[in-house]
Write a protein that binds this DNA or RNA. Structure first.
Length: 983
DNA sequence: TAGAAAACGTA
DNA sequence: GTACGTTTTCTAG
């Protein structure tokens, strides 16, 4: 090795832990072998090696080795038996991956280095020293702070997951001390994850400050008496020896007796087939193809069976000192590539292109005059597809001001299939200079006047022959609608992704970009700041704004290119086109209408609740015998189960006393006064803080109404969610709570109409599981819970004791939730054994339900997802988890999803049709709110009856014609001047 | 000041 | 036992 060489040292052990937690869980499709960290590792190595092949990149490795920990028995353990003693067993899903990562390293033909008695960090330190002596540079692929002490002008670090170089400046920025003082800093702070003691009460900030003042650890310890702060001085004096011990523990050994010569790390050309065999065995299809292309090997010629990838003993790395080996299992080939131009092949190819394309920030345009904007729009229009994104002053589309907008398109070469680089541009409209105060805030020059730009935008956005692409179109749709523009003909990348991947991960742009493009977009807070220093987008510097906004449009277009073909490949086109995309306008209209809320009613209730809570608080403190924060479950638990020594206390997951309402009710049932008062107090304060106090703040000053925001792509099952404010959890169960509903009112001359599905989920269950008894009961209009009770307990429906019916009802709900004895027992406050008996009896009487539940689980295990009756998918990637808790949870969720999701699809179908149906019937009322199985309308007094008829009709027939329900859907509707009475 | 945990409101 | 969002408290930084 010599001067111009560059050694890369990959911290293999550090990487695997970090990747395991940071990357989405991934399992090998054919057998559920967890391989997420291995996949991340292979991608990372391939990227490093790609840079090595590409000489245009600045830093390229000539030598590379991957370093691992051998075992936890190291010389540090001798020095200090407590070292790393607090480490728990690695997660089960990680265990097979230790061995696989070593296999992967070998498949890459890279040296796989480990040494008994030493940690990877010591080997890295030693090799970095050897390289430096040879005059070569070293890059350590790790972000571990323990390695930062090694940074010198010739040794730097690289965080591969954040794509960030870590040099001297970065160390100083992060820790406040230069690399050569990291050892001293760590000696003071210690390290809780490794159980390095340090000095109590000294954190990184204090340590850096002390080292700044005294220079180094020895000086500091020697002159500790001079420290002014009492506690700090005492600690440093008392724990000086502990600091010295810590120093020994954190100092990396640069003279480890390494066995391999640096020259043996020299990079050789890639052995394509060997690597491909491994990657195919792992079922990393994207990377397999990439490697095949780069090495000129033919992937289909390589037989993965030539590598033995086992996840039994052979795959277990020496990272583990003990633990039982899993069943050995040899990997099988699973190559579905046919090479034909099928929708699936197209989707794969597009995803490939998207993942490999580079995003070039320097190519973005900023359109500052009409000529430039016109030219850009004209060119975009040519292609027929344009990505669009608005930049505004607020996340609330009903309050936001339009600050600018970005567009992106990809020029097509008319003759060939080839296409040019994506063109992306930002048009600033009302950016301001300086601070937002009396002096600053003047409009920046050379921005197109808003109305002129809007006029041009309108023709583009309303042109049905140009497809507009947005990420979360509902937001931009609302912004534009408020400016008199109704976007027509659009796709939404968030909704496409949701149709394909609900349950897989987030559907936000950043998540999608990382998932599909392997690119991390500029964070909003990077341009607009965060917390105190945050500014609205109109105060962002135009140059920065351009890069950020144009990138968003650019990324959106790329996502569309990658995702749209997947819809066809996965058979999800109609889910997207019938259940997702039409909801954009439907919901946007509802949000824009808002609902009227009576301030006076809320304010009066607020006062009542405050009075009630204050009185209760006094009683509570008297009963408790001391003043305490009643709102603190921690303090309350201590009083009830500590001071008062009440029996029956249980602890929460984090070890605190549980004080849930259920627990308190139990105590109240024993005749205690205090717990009941707490429950009452909590109810009143909850109602006050969450509803009566908060709701008035959501009244829009311009419209004088409350505009909630519905999230279309946030649930796994297909339900909507509502926020800011959440109008899907307005109280209804208690009399006190219902008072809040009286504040939701119709405008004068109008009524609120509430129409809700009766038992829709049980009806869906009867349909999907095809249960004769249930179908008949619904067809005959029976009381379904009484019927269930009668079947189970042999009691006639007539004169059914309420308690028996209550239990049957709980069981019916339990079935929908993927019943467990534990849950049912909890719900009914009965022993688990009794709950088990109930479930057994239920399944004996309704064996079809058990069959349905079993087949749903089997389907989920096989495919990784379940489907609603309309084909919507909900993914459960952890359904095969080796952790029984996680697995069971996923099984229950998978059982629930087709039921909850089908019901959600049904009401979506109704919502999509209802506006047109009202129009058709010449009705002027409109839909305002959705609460999962209920729709709320506002209709003129004289149209109430007709509105109820239309809504009921549409809702009851919403499944048709796609699905003919085997049970009738029933809707109850009524009208009143407030929501409480209408419901 | 940001995030986790606990609690609780809805279907 | 399913699916959510918001509030308060408390801790860590």
């Amino acid at each position: 090795m010599n001067k111009n060489d560059h050694l890369f040292l990959v911290d293999g052990s550090g990487y695997i832990f970090r990747a395991f937690h940071a990357l989405p869980p991934l399992t090998r499709k054919s057998d559920g072998l967890p391989v997420g960290a291995v996949a991340g590792f292979c991608n990372m190595l391939w990227k490093l090696l790609a840079d090595a092949r590409d000489t245009s990149v600045g830093v390229t490795p000539t030598h590379l080795a991957v370093i691992f920990d051998y075992s936890s028995k190291t010389f540090r353990k001798e020095l200090y038996p407590e070292y790393k003693a607090n480490r728990s067993e690695p997660p089960e899903d990680l265990i097979p991956q230790f061995g696989l990562i070593r296999e992967a390293t070998k498949a890459f033909d890279l040296p796989c280095i480990e040494l008994e008695g030493f940690e990877a960090d010591d080997l890295i330190a030693t090799y970095a020293r050897l390289a430096e002596e040879a005059g070569a540079d070293t890059t350590i692929i790790s972000s571990d702070k323990d390695l930062m002490q090694l940074v010198t002008p010739h040794v730097s670090m690289y965080d591969s997951m954040k794509d960030r170089q870590i040099g001297r400046d970065e160390v100083i920025e992060k820790w406040g001390v230069p690399p050569e003082k990291m050892i001293d800093l760590q000696s003071l702070t210690g390290d809780s994850t490794d159980n390095v003691p340090g000095v109590p009460g000294i954190g990184p900030k204090t340590a850096a400050q002390l080292l700044e003042e005294y220079g180094d650890l020895d000086t500091l310890l020697a002159r500790a008496g001079e420290i002014k702060q009492n506690k700090r001085r005492e600690n440093i004096i008392a724990f000086a020896d502990q600091a010295r011990l810590s120093r020994e523990l954190v100092t990396l050994k640069i003279d480890t007796p390494v066995e391999d010569d640096l020259d043996s790390f020299k990079l050789e050309p890639q052995n394509g087939p060997k690597l491909i065999a491994f990657l195919k065995a792992m079922e990393f299809t994207t990377l397999t193809r990439r490697v095949a292309e780069a090495t000129g090997a033919e992937a289909s010629d390589v037989d993965p069976a030539t590598v033995e990838v086992a996840w039994g003993a052979a795959a277990r790395g020496p990272d583990l000192d003990e633990g039982d080996a899993a069943t050995p299992e040899t990997a099988t080939a699973n190559d579905s590539d046919s090479g034909q131009w099928t929708p699936a092949a197209l989707a794969r190819a597009r995803a490939e292109e998207a993942a490999s394309a580079r995003i070039d920030h320097s190519a973005y345009h900023c359109l500052r005059d009409m000529e430039a904007l016109d030219a850009f729009i004209a060119a975009a229009r040519e292609t027929g597809v344009v990505a669009f994104d608005t930049e505004t002053t607020s996340l609330d589309p009903m309050q936001a001001e339009l600050v600018g907008f970005s567009l992106a398109y990809q020029p097509q070469d008319g003759k060939a299939a080839a296409s040019g680089p994506i063109q992306a541009a930002y048009t600033p409209l009302i950016h301001k200079a300086g601070a937002d105060d009396l002096l600053g805030g003047g409009l920046v020059e050379n921005q197109i006047p808003v109305d002129e730009a809007l006029a041009r935008l309108k023709t583009l956005l309303e042109d049905p022959s140009v497809l507009k692409i947005a990420q979360n179109m509902k937001y931009d749709w609302l912004i534009m609608k408020r400016h008199g523009v109704e976007i027509e003909s659009f796709d939404d990348t968030m909704l496409i992704s949701y149709a394909i991947d609900a349950g897989v991960g987030g559907q936000g742009m950043d998540a999608l970009s990382e998932r599909w493009l392997g690119h991390k977009p500029i964070a909003y807070k990077e341009v607009a700041g965060s917390g105190r220093s945050a500014v609205t987008f109109d105060f962002v510097d135009i140059e920065k704004a351009t890069t950020y906004a144009a990138e968003d449009a650019d990324v959106t277009l790329r996502l569309w290119q990658a995702l749209k073909p997947r819809l066809a490949a996965d058979g999800l086109v109609s889910v997207y086109e019938r259940l997702e995309r039409p909801m954009v306008a439907t919901l946007a209209n509802m949000e824009m209408r808002g609902v009227s809320v009576d301030r006076q009613i809320l304010s009066r209730l607020s006062g009542d609740f405050a009075q009630g809570a204050a009185a209760l608080e006094d009683e509570i403190q008297t009963l408790a015998g001391e003043k305490f924060n009643v709102g603190s479950p921690r303090q309350l638990g201590e009083i009830l189960f500590g001071k008062m020594g009440l029996p029956g206390g249980t602890k929460t997951r984090s070890g605190q006393w549980s004080t849930t309402a259920q627990k308190l009710e139990e105590l109240a049932a024993e005749g205690l006064e205090l717990p009941g008062k707490i429950v009452e107090w909590r109810q009143l304060t909850k109602l006050k803080s969450t509803y009566t106090d908060a709701l008035p703040g959501f009244i829009n000053p311009e419209t004088d109404r409350v505009h909630t925001s519905y999230a279309l792509a946030s649930t796994t099952t297909g339900r909507l969610s509502s926020s800011e404010p959440n109008l899907q959890n307005i109280p209804v169960r208690t009399a006190e709570g219902r008072k809040i509903r009286t504040a939701f009112v119709s405008q004068p001359g109008y009524k609120l109409v509430s129409a809700d599905y009766s038992q829709i989920e049980l009806r869906v269950l009867a349909h999907v599981a095809d249960i004769e008894a249930l179908k008949k009961a619904f067809a005959d209009g029976l009381d379904i819970h009484a019927m269930t009770a009668s079947e189970m307990f042999g009691v006639p429906v007539k004169d059914m004791p309420p308690e028996i019916r209550r239990r049957a009802k709980a069981i019916n709900f339990g079935i929908i939730y993927g019943i467990s004895a534990f849950g049912l027992a909890n719900q009914l406050s009965i022993p688990r054994s009794e709950a088990s008996e109930y479930i057994k009896t239920y399944f004996e009487r309704f064996p079809g339900i058990r069959d349905y539940m079993e087949s749903t689980k089997a389907f989920a295990r096989e495919h990784g997802y379940v489907e609603t009756i309309f084909g919507r998918r909900a993914h459960y990637p952890e359904i095969k988890s080796s952790n029984p808790q996680v697995r069971s949870f996923n099984e229950r969720a998978a059982i629930n999803a087709p039921i909850q999701g089908s019901a959600a699809d049904i009401i979506r179908r109704a919502m999509i049709r209802i506006d047109a149906a009202l129009d058709e019937a010449d009705l002027t009322g409109s839909m305002l709110l959705q609460v999962h199985d209920e729709l709320i309308f506002e209709a003129p007094d004289d149209e109430v009856d007709a509105t109820i008829r239309v809504a009921t009709d549409i809702m009851e027939n919403a499944a048709m014609p796609a699905v003919a329900m085997k049970v009738p859907l029933k809707v109850d509707a009524r009208a009143a001047s407030n929501w409480d009475e209408a419901h």
